[in-house]
Structures are given as structure tokens and as C-alpha cells.
Simulated scan of single mutants.
Amino acid sequence: MCNCFDENLARVTEHLKDRISGEFTEFEADWKDQSFFLDGKKHVPVNPKIKYSYRLKKKDGTPRANKTNHEVSMVARYCPFCGEDTQADEAD
């Protein structure tokens, strides 16, 4: 599998460090919402989430006071940076 995620994280990390206008002792940057798969197959390490919300109606037809919020995660089969198929080796 490609190493686009590692390469891009390193590039962005250096860019962010350069933008800090003072001295610092620690700096950490990592992908948010990483996934760990136990199946031994290659996967994109970060899976995007889609947030959605809705407001239900009461029985009288007026909207409820609070919204209901949810998220759904997607598992990417292709690298979003280079387009490499993470499961191409499995097709053989």
C-alpha cells in the first residue's frame, strides 16, 4: 500500500511548525479518527465521517426543541491522495 498518509502528515506537520510564531517545547500532530482493523488487510487509516442532524415534529406538527445528531463512518477503498486501490492485491 502507498505511504501517502505518512508523507502528507509529515509535510503538514512541518508546515504547521513553521507557522508558530514563538518557541515551543512540544508539538504533536496526527490524523483524527484513525481506524484499526484486525482483519490483516490493507486499509486507508483514516475514515471520513458524515455528520447529520434532524429535528422531528411533535404530534401537533410543531418542531421539537432539540435536534437529533448522528454520525456515520465510511471506509475508503482507494487512497484519497494517489488513488491506489488498497485491495488490489486481494483480487489476485
Rank of each mutant, 00 (worst) to 15 (best):
C82Q: 01
G61R: 02
V75Q: 09
R64G: 04
Y52T: 03
R19P: 02
N47E: 05
N8H: 13
S35C: 09
R64Q: 14
N47S: 09
E90Y: 05
E71Y: 12
K32M: 14
I20C: 00
A10E: 13
K49T: 13
E28R: 13
A76L: 15
N69M: 10
E23S: 12
H70T: 10
G40F: 09
W31R: 03
F5N: 04
Y78S: 05
N66C: 10
L56H: 11
D33P: 03
P48N: 01
F5G: 03
Q34T: 15
D89W: 11
C79H: 03
E7I: 15
Q34A: 11
K57T: 06
K57N: 08
D18K: 14
R64P: 04
R77M: 08
F5E: 05
E26K: 13
V46A: 13
K67V: 06
T68M: 13
I20K: 02
F81K: 01
N47C: 04
A91Q: 12
E14M: 00
M1V: 11
V44L: 00
R11Q: 12
C4Y: 00
D6K: 09
T86F: 14
S53E: 14
F27L: 00
S35G: 06
L56I: 09
G22Q: 13
E7T: 14
C2I: 00
T86M: 13
H15Q: 14
L56T: 13
H15P: 05
W31N: 02
K49I: 14
T25M: 08
R55W: 05
E23A: 07
A29W: 07
D92E: 14
T25S: 13
A29M: 09
E84D: 10
A76E: 11
G61D: 03
Y78W: 06
E84Q: 12
T68R: 15
N8V: 07
R64E: 15
